[in-house]
């Protein structure tokens, strides 16, 4: 079956070049890098044709989605697309929409020899506690012909009753050597010249996220077949805009109005949510050119306003109020 899966893709690839993240996404469990302990257990499910609900936890870009897709392919063969439903908890406008989709999907029996279908719910930790309770009931209701794979960054954000109903899989952050191996393989396939500096730059910006590494590699390759550190950083700086850092520095320097304009641009034009911005602020605050005690004081403020943002009605107002605190502390 594994061979058939690989061959089916070849014909299409010749004409349509997929984005590399998709093109080089492993098609079978054995090709997944750096997660051997997980691959072994998943292959057992594929062989026996049974599995419990699964919970995948781990940082982004380490293979959670890929593992789910590969497992479905190996379990269901050519029918995998019909027996596999991918949902995103943060995008489905509430638990009721998810429930409806689950119900609709579970209404029909699986195709082929399989005795169940799989629902992959990405970003399950984006659901509120109440929504997770509702999800738990949904999982139980359809447990005779649907298995869930829940994916999240932090397993601690998943409520206890769901954790206890799932087999837990902790994905490790990828080691630089794993990422490097994959990047070298792709560079070879694409006839690129991957310089050592270029590779180190890719590892630096990727921070263990293989998806980001491959994305940046493709964009650098669009500039030149020689992958230099310079091109890598040029591309990567676009991917992670410096705007949030700039905004914080403007506020600290006492330029509140300009910082406020920047914030509005980030929220409205770039499409980040208030929570995304606050997470980035927290990441960046320790890299700011300020005294150590101030970093701690600001981190505390960020925490306070993260809390207010969840409680409040308008995230822009809360973030602007946080910027005003920056201006006050920056004085």
């Amino acid at each position: 079956m594994v061979e058939a899966i690989k061959e089916a893709e070849i014909k299409e690839v010749k004409i349509l070049e997929k984005p590399w993240v998709e093109k080089y996404r492993p098609k079978v469990l054995d090709d997944i890098v750096g997660q051997d302990h997980i691959v072994r257990r998943l292959k057992h499910y594929a062989r026996t044709g049974t599995m419990p609900h699964l919970l995948f936890a781990g940082p982004p870009g380490v293979g959670k989605t890929t593992a789910a897709l590969c497992l479905a392919r190996e379990l269901f063969g050519e029918h995998w697309g019909h027996n596999f439903l991918e949902l995103n908890a943060s995008d489905e406008r509430g638990i009721n929409v998810i429930r409806e989709k689950v119900k609709e999907f579970a209404r029909t029996k699986p195709i082929g020899a399989a005795s169940f279908k799989i629902i992959f719910l990405d970003e399950a930790d984006a659901l509120t506690q109440d929504a997770q309770q509702a999800l738990r009931r949904t999982m139980e209701m359809f447990s005779n012909n649907v298995r869930f794979i829940l994916s999240c960054n932090y397993s601690s954000k998943i409520i206890e009753p769901i954790q206890s109903r799932c087999a837990m899989f902790r994905f490790r952050p990828l080691k630089d050597e794993d990422v490097a191996k994959r990047l070298r393989y792709i560079a070879e396939q694409e006839r690129l010249e991957l310089t050592e500096e270029g590779l180190q730059a890719l590892l630096y910006v990727a921070e263990g996220d293989l998806r980001r590494a491959i994305n940046v590699l493709q964009a650098a390759a669009a500039l030149d077949i020689v992958i230099t550190d310079e091109n890598v950083f040029t591309v990567a700086s676009r991917a992670r805009p410096e705007d949030v850092r700039e905004m914080m520095i403007l506020a600290l320097e006492g330029n509140f109005l300009k910082a406020r304009d920047k914030l509005r641009e980030i929220l409205l034009k770039q499409g980040l949510s208030g929570e995304d911005v606050i997470i980035q602020m927290h990441k960046e605050v320790f890299n700011l050119p300020i005294s150590e005690p101030k970093k701690v004081a600001l981190a505390d403020k960020i925490g306070e306003y993260n809390f207010r943002l969840v409680e409040g009605a308008n995230e822009m107002i809360q973030l602007e109020a946080l910027l005003a605190q920056f201006t006050l502390l920056g004085k």
Binding site: V21, T65, N88, Q218, A219, A221, L223, R238, A239, D276
Partner: peptide, 26 residues
């Protein structure tokens, strides 16, 4: 199409922008 969460998709879109401006075939 690429099995991503929203934040990942935003990042990918930014990187794609660079490809769209520099390599029209890709």
């Amino acid at each position: 199409q690429m099995h991503m969460s929203k934040l990942e998709a935003i990042e990918t879109m930014q990187i794609f922008k660079s490809i769209f401006e520099n390599n029209l075939d890709a």
